[in-house]
Amino acid sequence: MKDKITAYIQGMLAGESVDIKEDDDLLSTGLLDSISVMKLIAFLEEEFDVEVPADEMVIENFISVSAISDFLNSKK
């Protein structure tokens, strides 16, 4: 799951060159802006067949690849 997420983020950011570790802060570093997070969420919903309610779109759930992965697992 984490690999898929990382790969998507890299693809979205158009380059393997961006090295993303699973605990990297995606948000406050500006790596992902709000638009990117929304697109990522759309991807996650489709890919892992989950629904992310708007009020769960909060920092701690999306701060890093591992946070996202934990969050998704909790939804299943």
Binding site: M12, L13, A14, L31, D33, I35
Partner: peptide, 11 residues
Amino acid sequence: PSLNRQLPEFR
């Protein structure tokens, strides 16, 4: 306005 800077290279 949508910021529209999705690629890191445009940041």
